[in-house]
Amino acid sequence: MNHRSLRITAALAAVALGLTACGGSGSADSASSSAAGSAGDSSAAVEEYTVGINQLTTHPALDATREGFKEAFADAGLKVEFDEQNAQGDQATVTSIASTFASASDVDLVAAIATPAAQGTASAVKDKPVVFMAVTDPKAAELVKADDAPGGNVTGVSDRNPVKEQLQLLKDVKPDAKTVGIVYNSGEVNSKVQVDQAKAAGKDLGLEVKEATITNSSEVQQGVQALGDVDGIYVPTDNAVVSALETVLSYGKDKKAPVISADTDSVEKGALGTFGIDYKEHGKQAGEMAVKILRDGAKPESTPVGFADPASLELVLNKEAATSFGVELPQELLGRADEVIGG
């Protein structure tokens, strides 16, 4: 069927028709049996939905977001067919995927993971709901008119990071730190937002931000070298930089400049630490929003953008990474950690 398939159990009706066609023998018993069967059958409609997913690229945090999103539908008991597409970091592919979803009559809602994917999807999909995830600043990305009143067919959940608290980790392990370097993709709005937040936080923390811009992951090596001598490095939720994290980590080890990340997966891979969100829970929060839109009739234009509950933020540290950067994690910091890797 076109927009949404609605399956209604019709077995009893078929049986009744069959018995009628067979003639009158046993008709009273058949009628009695049919009535009993009808009483025991709820004949409930099973509603099915098709949800398109436009994911910018493959990355553990974004993958966890996608899985959390899908899990919310399972928890709600909804029957959903997911059409999962991955642009592998190519914006032209993002646009192509979004256009396909826009013209597909059987797609009921489109989910977009990461800011560039959300922007491409919002530009193409105008007549069905769009729910975004892993977007730092939806308003700056021009996805919504306002966080509390999106005003269109697009809403979702922001992964806005507590940048100041994350940069504080550098001061905790290196109190005399004066400079922090940031490499970021100039084409990602979310990255620019985080750099601006870092600059503002740096003033309060006594940290000068040195920045280097890139346009793709192949330029990360050039970017970190352009930073020169810095006391630490901050890696925002920038898809191009995170995909080349090993390059950043290697530079940080050589310079004895601790690498602080904006996501927990990077800490598992060798960054010193972060104070950030659980991306699976982030995706689940977006999934619950999508459920309300599909099942309960909530309107995207009046559904406020969601943000992570501060109580759900996690302090994750990596002791082995600290050693490789030539610093020691203070006991007080370790005592507050939700997870310590290599400890």
Rank of each mutant, 00 (worst) to 15 (best):
A149D: 09
G120I: 08
F82G: 05
A257T: 00
I113A: 07
A76I: 10
H282N: 06
G223P: 08
G24C: 11
P60C: 08
D127T: 13
E301I: 11
S25R: 15
K284T: 07
A212S: 09
T155V: 05
S99T: 15
T155H: 04
R7V: 09
I53L: 11
A14G: 13
G156D: 08
S261D: 04
V173P: 05
T58Y: 00
V220A: 05
V125G: 02
S103Q: 15
I53C: 03
P258D: 02
Q331Y: 05
A134N: 02
D63F: 01
D238T: 12
Q221D: 09
S99P: 09
S42T: 14
G343W: 02
N185L: 02
S123E: 14
V15D: 10
G77P: 04
N2V: 15
G270D: 01
V15P: 05
T93L: 01
D137W: 02
S266Q: 06
N318S: 03
D127E: 13
G326N: 00
G18N: 13
V242P: 03
P258L: 09
S324N: 12
A321T: 06
Q166C: 00
F325Q: 11
A28F: 14
L313N: 09
D231V: 11
V107W: 04
E328P: 00
I53D: 06
S250A: 12
P175Y: 08
M133H: 06
G343S: 03
A337N: 01
A14T: 13
V241C: 02
A104C: 02
H282K: 06
G276Y: 06
A322W: 04
P129F: 09
Q119D: 12
P175D: 06
R66I: 00
A198P: 09
Y184D: 01
